[in-house]
């Protein structure tokens, strides 16, 4: 479930990145790298788990599924927190700079 949530997040972010490219004012590319990187790593985790559990891997207990969903959503939230911090620090549109400094004539 965590893998699934991460893959969906990666696909949505990539689609948004492509739509706004070549401009990268919102730094959506960062989210793409975060979610694709974690998706690939969880894919490996899933393959190893499948090798161990077999078909039972696809029929998890509802409690485990809920916990994994909760984890997946938390991971997306963490990814977005990292992204928003980087966006505000890099400030590509100069909004923060504009608020901090006033132009002197």
């Amino acid at each position: 479930m965590t893998l699934l949530v991460s893959v969906f997040a990666a696909i949505i972010c990539t689609a948004i990145w492509y739509k706004t490219a070549p401009k990268s004012e919102m730094k959506v590319g960062l989210l793409c790298w975060l979610f694709w990187g974690s998706s690939l790593m969880w894919l490996v985790d899933a393959i190893f788990e499948y090798a161990e559990l077999g078909a039972a891997y696809f029929t998890p207990e509802p409690a485990d599924m809920l916990n994994d969903l909760f984890l997946g959503l938390s991971v997306v939230a963490l990814g977005m927190i990292i992204w928003i911090i980087v966006l505000l620090i890099k400030d590509p549109k100069g909004v923060i700079k504009g608020k901090l400094f006033r132009k002197k004539s």
Binding site: S6, L30, W33, L34, M41, L71, V75, L78
Partner: peptide
Amino acid sequence: GWLNKLLWGGSALLAFEHLW
């Protein structure tokens, strides 16, 4: 840089999973 972003991004989110 592509490789580094994939590695850092994945490691950061997986570190959170391990903390979880």
